[in-house]
Amino acid sequence: MEAIKTKIEVTEKERLPVVSEREAVFEARDLAVYYGDQRAIDGVNLDIYQRLITAIIGPSGCGKSTFLRTLNRMNDLVPAARLTGQLRYRGIDLYGPGVDAVEVRRRVGMVFQKPNPFHSSIYDNVAYGLRILGMKKDLDERVEKALRAAALWDEVKDRLKDSALGLSGGQQQRLCIARAIAVEPEVVLFDEPASALDPISTSAIEDLMHELKRDYTLVIVTHNMQQAARVADMTAFFGLDVSPDGNRQGVLVEYDETEKIFTNPSDKRTEGYVTGRFG
């Protein structure tokens, strides 16, 4: 990873609500995730707040993606993955008995590192989720609304029937965002959404996240600290910890307002990471 020697500028944002007014969407309590015998993250205690952008940063291998994928139960797809501790979503135990992962994922959408449009038209990509969920009324309007919200409408409105694979990388990623928000989720997770994109597309995605914040709770995993500083209200720093049994696992080192993390971190490890001295 490229070392950053200078202090990172934190973008000016609207005032954050004071702590007592924030409403937690996710509450992680002593959360640990295992892949087989390997512990990937351990002892995570973290609240993610409604209608804010929360960034998760940290060195590679620190379990940031693992943590993100527990939030919409995508880790269920890894056969050997299991979880201890508790993770509540708006008060409900996300891994409690009877909870259906499909319902969780409908409410908690996800945008991936690599744009992954389906092999169908632009329109059908956005309509896919709506169709399976039975939201077939006003399908055209819903598709347009999602494409507008993803700032893609003007670029594609004349070629909705064209294959989505013909779009540029940045457009494909915005299409994937449109696809995710078309089904009206409550949260959207971004797993390094701009790491495969050029700077102009990246900046378009970041602008878009600011727009989406009005309606959605956003969580973004990124290895790009400037990006976290630019978009996030809250930032969680995950670090690597070696336990006495030799297992290397990710732990939550510090979680605070982005400004504080980047300008006045309380943990030495965070300070070392954000000023580029390690990681």
């Binding site: 919409n72 995508m74 797809l77 499909v102 319902e103 994922r105 409908r106 409410r107 959408g109 996800m110 991936f112 690599k114 992954n116 449009p117 389906f118 092999h119 896919y128 989720g129 399976i132 969920l133 994937c176 696809r179 995710a180 089904v183």
Partner: peptide
Amino acid sequence: VPPELREGALALGATRWE
């Protein structure tokens, strides 16, 4: 078929069959 396509559909709340 790339696994990302499968994940993309599942992350939208599709069942495996969908």
